[in-house]
Design a protein around this nucleic acid. Structure first.
Lengths: 209, 209, 209, 209
DNA sequence: AATGAATGAGCCTTCATTCAT
DNA sequence: CATGAATGAAGGCTCATTCAT
């Protein structure tokens, strides 16, 4: 009995995952704005109505995809570095982890950028939006901890972490849109440079107040 | 005869500009995705069909708007600083000009980001895309010149300018999406910090090789 | 064996009644047009498919609800008045019973009017329709009997009863749709007036021929 | 020039009327709830989107149809009777006019009943609803005037007019739904009877207070 | 140059019902 | 008896674009 329920649940989960896979593919092919329930259903091998057995709405699909992406991001960050590392090395490891995740997975970047799509949070319920924000914060937190371990106060660490995040985001955006090749540069190298310079600056004691 | 043609041309240009004004207003009110030809026509005082006398398609309107936005960006940058300034001050003036332009005009930022919407260039012909890219480059060039005047080689100057642009873009994105308030920071202050640190670094001779 | 069958039957009946209760609740909350099998199932604690174990179709649910409503109507009418009453008083008691039932239970009125929705009988089988009509007749019959007891012939009694029914139906409709408040009147008072006038007229011998 | 505009306007009006005709036909065939924009468009010889050139929404179509129906109702009432008539005869003429209009035009009755559909005003904007209500009042007003001319006070006239309206509405409903044949009666005869009795009662001075 | 009616494709979503399990 | 996934049809509506006038 229990076994049957489990089997059903597993089957249901697998089918839901199938829809999610189709959605990911459609988003990739048509862009997130261009994706439609019809097309997602088609690629998942369903009629449109069937999608609503698994997701309440189009936005819910996007939300599920983004949530899962953020889980993978956090997994990457968690796996990077270790406590035995010197703070500067830990900073480098953690920052490189989140940056590298998005550099290597442009679709996850699409997903993330869409969250702020049209430069406006939208579509998701406030609650889900907050959850997703929290998970993003989680991925960035280790860098802030490392910055504090390097001697910065809470305020300074927050400021540097924000700047670091912005720098990475800008580079990813440029790279992803092809603008950075235009500049004849490599985003990952530039990010590494930023990190090196940052560590140097912090260790030399030259800090803006 | 010639005079009549000129008059007609001027009239046509003026009406085209009117459509563009309406389009800008609609984009502002409804966002770029939410804008429709119908609504643009309505606000311009036309019926939908008339718009096609001035623009080939909806994307062409967007292209024209973006082109004009980039002209204003360049005008802002051109007006900033002057040749008598020390290179470091000139850098600050020019960089603050482009950053400030977008910080102060979020709709122009929308326009620019929409170009890379879904992280994929779209809608514009390759030719127009190149033209627009060139104008963006023009706006960033003065910073690169200043960096060279500070003693950097062409390669180094390009690299620093790219990093500078990425940093600014990242901050603008975070601010515009509301994420930066989340971090309790102010984008303009962080950008200014970046500039100060950059100048310090360059003048102290600590350059990553 | 027999006992088990009986137990099963009883159980089945109880569950069917549960579905009906849920349906009534849903009709009340969402209106008859707004009700869906999904929602009825949800409120009954079932999944949609299960409903079809108890009812052949959505219209069958409506039919069962209407049948039960008519039973309650008849119960109300049966409980009103008594044989010891003078015919005029009996008429008043019985007519007030059916009118009062619908005035006090607007959902039952909805149900009844839905039967003639769009002014066209629909959804029900002819057979069921006839059954329901018969039960409506049953509820109105006591008035006709009283009218005859007051001295009217069969034809006259039928005519007066029909007029009486129409009058009540019109008032209920006006009241239920809010139109009667528009006229600044109270439906029950007007119905009572009609009854008084009717009795007066019949007893004074002024009868239209 | 002017002529062209007029021709265009006339053409547009004609096409709008064509849509309305199709809508009327569809409402007749499928009932008002069953009617769809798609089907109305099909019968009007258009694609669904074209309908929206003429009407803002499905409800707007219904509203236009109902408005036009009420105009015809008022025209009928206005044409009935004349000032030279004795008040009692004027009452009979005006009341028979509105009743006769609906008895002869069951589709208009459908339209009117739908307004109170599901026994609930719905779909129409409050403003339009009020307009339509006013036109209904207009059609009933002459009866009230006649009642006052017969010596009734304002309150009494209103009460009698409300009762008269309810009686007619009830009879129309019974007839239209086929229930009245069930009673073996004729709605128009019964309405005429009600009027005769009413006049008699008022003239004999037997008035409920 | 401008109109505005019309198209055709598309959108998300809802629904009663069926059926393998 | 009950599940719940799936269907297939339909729903109102929007939109960029075209084209006869």
């Amino acid at each position: 009995m229990q076994a049957r329920l489990q089997r059903q649940q597993a089957q249901s989960d697998a089918r839901r995952a199938g829809v999610l896979d189709a959605a990911r593919a459609v988003f990739e092919q048509l862009g997130i704005e261009g994706a439609s329930i019809r097309e997602i259903a088609r690629q998942a091998g369903y009629t449109p109505g069937a999608i609503y057995s698994y997701f309440e709405s189009k936005e819910a699909i996007y939300g599920a995809l983004l949530a899962e992406s953020l889980e993978r991001l956090n997994a990457s960050v968690d796996a990077a570095g270790h406590t035995a590392l010197a703070p500067a090395e830990q900073l480098d490891a953690k920052a490189s982890a989140w940056f590298g995740f998005y550099a290597a997975n442009p679709r996850d970047l699409d997903l993330g950028f869409y969250l702020v799509q049209g430069m406006r949070p939208r579509g998701l319920t406030a609650e889900l939006n907050d959850q997703l924000n929290d998970r993003l914060h989680d991925a960035l937190q280790p860098c802030e901890v490392a910055l504090q371990a390097m001697g910065l106060g809470a305020q300074e660490a927050l400021r540097e972490n924000t700047a670091l995040f912005a720098h990475g985001v800008g580079l990813l955006l440029l790279q992803h849109t092809g603008r950075i090749r235009m500049f004849g540069q490599d985003a990952s190298l530039l990010f590494e440079n930023y990190l090196i310079t940052l560590v140097e600056r912090l260790q030399s004691g030259h800090r803006p107040d």
